[in-house]
Simulated assay, not measured.
Amino acid sequence: MTPTAPPAAGPRTPWEELPRTLRDAVADVLGAPVRTAVTQEGGFSPGAAARVTTTDHRRAFVKAVSAETNPDSPTLHRTEARNASALPANTPAPRLLGTYDDGTWVALVFEDVAGRQPHVPWLEGEFRRVLDAVEELGRALTPAPFDAPTAAQSLAHAFQGWRQLVDSGDTGGEGLDPWTAAHLHELAELSAPWTEFATGETLAHGDLRADNVLLTEDGGVVFVDWPHAVRAAPWFDLLLMLPCVRAQGGPDPEEVFTAHPLGRDADPEGVTATLAALAGYFVRQSRQPAPPGLPTLRAFQHAQGAAALDWLRKRLAPTPA
């Protein structure tokens, strides 16, 4: 399958354009001024994302965003700071070194990870490596090491996409295929009990995509960007990840999920309900106006929604279409 999703990308703010007070605060965290900063591509943050090197050769990764660029992003950065600081030391995630928050700008300073994002389209060997790491992550973070919100709490509104489309009368038009438009009520009913099945005590990352993964030269896998962490079933991360993998050239999600150690023992009814809820989220979100500073997000969500729906229809294949 060739990729259908556009690159996960947003406009980056150059390091040199960040406020002087913020750059000075980063220098305080690192113990020396920043000498060089290289902007990193990938991901949907509309702020700065740079690998920096100080005058005394210390390396770090800095991400920073302003409420003026996107009103929601500073809140996500603050949540990520709390989550990152609470992760166990042995979690394959970057260590948070310090933060800056003046009420408008928020910056997070992490240890630099010498790694790269997986290739897109996905390569089989890299994908298998990430799948193994997802299994290890799920087992290592069970029970959840801190009191993150449950998936039901965090996604109660977001995962009612089908019901919201029905209630709003948004049942056709561009971007909604005929099968989906004809089955909106059934999809809303199918997804309704997802919280019963997705409940669990595993700390899920909640947003696993290629641009949130780093592959290191020693064969390791590091998971970055943790603002969406929730307590959920052990298979929750795997399910959320696979539609994006499919949309970026990856294999059949049904085959991957049912063969994976975290997925093969999952309740089939619960998987289907949660997948239906996820598909509804992506489809509805893809039909909303583009948020400030994130020009490709809706197209990316559309591709994920299409992949999730294809997977869902495969699971529903024994029933009449």
Rank of each mutant, 00 (worst) to 15 (best):
M1I: 08
T2D: 15
A5V: 12
P6Q: 06
P7L: 14
A9R: 05
P11V: 15
W15Q: 03
W15D: 05
E16D: 06
R20E: 10
A25C: 06
A27K: 07
D28V: 10
G31W: 12
T36K: 12
V38L: 07
Q40C: 09
F44C: 13
P46Y: 13
T54W: 08
K63M: 04
S66T: 09
S66M: 10
P74A: 08
L76K: 11
H77K: 07
E80M: 13
E80H: 09
E80I: 15
A84R: 06
A93K: 06
L96W: 04
L97P: 02
D101A: 10
D101T: 08
D102R: 13
G103M: 14
V106E: 02
F110Q: 04
V113R: 09
P118F: 07
W122E: 06
R129N: 07
R129G: 11
V130F: 12
E135M: 00
G138D: 02
P143N: 09
D147Y: 00
P149N: 01
P149M: 12
A152V: 03
L155N: 08
A156S: 12
A156Y: 07
Q160C: 08
Q164W: 09
L165P: 00
L165W: 00
V166S: 00
D170W: 14
P178M: 14
A182G: 10
S191C: 08
W194T: 05
A198V: 13
G200A: 11
T202P: 00
L208F: 00
N212H: 13
L214C: 09
L214K: 08
L215D: 03
D218H: 15
D218K: 08
G220Q: 04
V221W: 02
D225Q: 08
W226G: 01
V230F: 06
R231G: 01
F236K: 02
C244F: 05
V245A: 11
A247P: 12
V256M: 01
A259N: 00
P261N: 03
P268R: 06
P268E: 04
T272R: 14
T274I: 10
Y281A: 14
R287Y: 06
P291D: 01
P291W: 00
P295R: 03
R298S: 13
Q301S: 07
Q304G: 14
Q304N: 12
Q304A: 14
L309N: 05
W311T: 13
L312I: 05
T319S: 14
A321H: 04
